[in-house]
Design a protein around this nucleic acid. Structure first.
Lengths: 137, 137
DNA sequence: CAATCTGTAATGATTACTATTACAGTACGT
DNA sequence: ACGTACTGTAATAGTAATCATTACAGATTG
């Protein structure tokens, strides 16, 4: 799994703590320790799905668009990383009963595993993550 | 996630269908569509944990060491891929409340997610995978 | 219109993953 | 004893995924 999922959580948590003003990709990237372009790419996705708003130009940046408890980690996972659990299977042998059928069996198992993990991730909203971050201070 | 997990499942399923004779890494690799050395590497791990037996020399190969329903996918996941869910976080900024604490918060969430997925994977033994493969024929 | 931001494409660097080669060690058959 | 057919594993090379960086167009403000 790439780190878009964690960067998205990091960014949203950052924005959650600055509810009244816009934050620039530079300030978020400084907090997360990655390049600002990467932040803009991830946040561009989140914006497309309505979680945040952005504004260009002087005084612009990003700001939360919804209530903190309306956004949970499964929502974010689906946007940034859906399918990441399933490893790409190589072309296996169609003449072998295992090779011919394993891929579809594994796909259905991995799909179920992801859905199941989703039930866990749904229990964490950004509000809860914010609380955890504050508490672990 | 790399494909050691799926290769392990593939190999064990293959062995499950050849319960009376040893299978070589060549025959398994042919079924899975990867290089035999890779199969030997994965099976070496499984052997170390007692799931299979191996024998060198003529007539040698790999064979299942336990009952098919004694081995479930969570066992295999733990051996081959534990921690694969958690993306490597970059060094984030210690001077920022988010940067300083996000990593440990995310680690605990990802750990929980993996454990939760484990509960799902425990429900699939190799026996069940074999049945699914047979059924989807 | 200059300054400061987002948005995004394109390129290069780095790291993870996989294939391949090479060879030592083991077991079997003759 | 010796050749053959295996596993076991290290080392190297090739490929793919990930990430950083550069570049620049478009938007907004003063």
């Amino acid at each position: 799994m790439n780190s878009d999922f964690t960067l998205a959580i990091h960014s949203l948590t950052f924005l959650a703590l600055q509810p009244d003003r816009m934050s620039t990709s530079d300030s978020i990237s400084e907090s997360a320790g990655v390049h600002p372009v990467r932040i803009r790419k991830v946040l561009s996705l989140l914006k497309k799905h309505g979680f945040i708003k952005s504004k260009e130009g002087i005084g612009g940046g990003f700001i939360f668009g919804l209530d903190l408890s309306e956004v949970n980690l499964w929502d974010i996972y689906k946007i940034t990383s859906e399918g990441a659990l399933k490893p790409k299977c190589p072309e296996s042998n169609e003449n072998c009963i295992v090779g011919a059928n394993m891929q579809k069996v594994l796909c259905s198992i991995f799909f179920g595993a992801e859905e199941h993990m989703g039930e866990y991730l749904k229990d964490y909203t950004i509000k809860e993550v914010v609380d955890l971050v504050k508490k672990s201070q």
